[in-house]
């Protein structure tokens, strides 16, 4: 009579495991390892002027009672942002006495697409009160010498981005924009005739100037 003994299968399994190299064998055996790759895309904001406005002559009648811009002046800003929510500002300034600059935007409508902007004389610029007399909303020709208000229109266009998400609100003397990530252009055009009570013989001949600035933070 012969007795044949079989070693239990567990022995083989144990040997494999104790070797410390292989995972347990058998029908359900498997082994795996994982790499979790993570890349950080940094915040990005770029605001650039893509079109500088050209200067224009201003015409006035024989009565010197109104001033009209001969050729509309257009400047274009381009904003590129990858931030989910990005704030930025459009501000206007014009030169005033003492080498100062005074905020010059006013009269914005509800969505800030139609505003007004004060231009002041560059040679011997006026007191800042000439500007604030106009931006205050109740101008009197005798109180705003060498300062003239004109219409400013702003149109925006979406060049890239997941959706149209631009909002604009009036914020004291500037426009505050908020948009989602994307690329947006802003076309700013000054044209037409002067705002009521901002042009008169108090405005002497010479060059008048105003500056529009788009920035991430309020100036």
């Amino acid at each position: 009579m012969k007795f044949k003994k079989l070693l239990p299968i567990a022995l083989a399994l144990m040997l494999c495991t104790s070797a410390g190299v292989y995972a347990a064998g058998g029908a359900d055996a498997q082994s795996s390892d994982t790499a979790v790759y993570t890349l950080n895309l940094a915040d990005y904001l770029r605001i650039a002027t893509t079109t500088d406005p050209s200067p224009s002559e201003v015409s006035y009648g024989t009565e010197y009672s109104s001033a009209t811009i001969d050729t509309a002046m257009t400047g274009v800003f381009k904003v590129i942002s990858n931030n989910r929510t990005q704030d930025f500002y459009l501000q206007g300034t014009c030169p005033t006495s003492g080498s100062s600059n005074t905020p010059c935007l006013y009269g914005a409508d509800g969505d800030c697409k139609n505003l007004k902007m004060v231009f002041t004389k560059t040679d011997n610029p006026p007191q800042s009160t000439s500007v604030t007399n106009i931006t205050g909303g109740s101008p009197a020709t005798g109180d705003n010498p060498d300062a003239i208000g004109f219409n400013l229109t702003i149109t925006s266009a979406r060049e890239d981005g997941p959706d149209e998400s631009l909002t604009a609100v009036w914020d004291t003397n500037k426009v505050k924009y908020t948009m989602n990530n994307g690329i947006e252009t802003f076309t700013c055009t000054v044209s037409g005739s002067n705002d009521t009570n901002t042009f008169s013989t108090h405005d002497t001949d010479g060059q008048y100037q105003a500056t529009l600035t788009m920035t991430e933070t309020a100036i």
Binding site: G26, A27, D28, A29, Q30, S31, S32, D33, T34, A35, V36, Y37, T38, L39, N40, L41, A42, D43, Y44, I80, N82, N83, R84, E159, D160, G161, P162, N181, G182, I183
Partner: peptide, 21 residues
């Protein structure tokens, strides 16, 4: 990749090497 389409932040992918019986 598009700077206008891809928001700032962390981007992730997971890779797993597996032996399946």
């Amino acid at each position: 990749y598009s700077i206008g389409q891809d928001e700032a932040g962390a981007y992730r992918a997971t890779v797993t090497f597996t032996a399946v019986s």
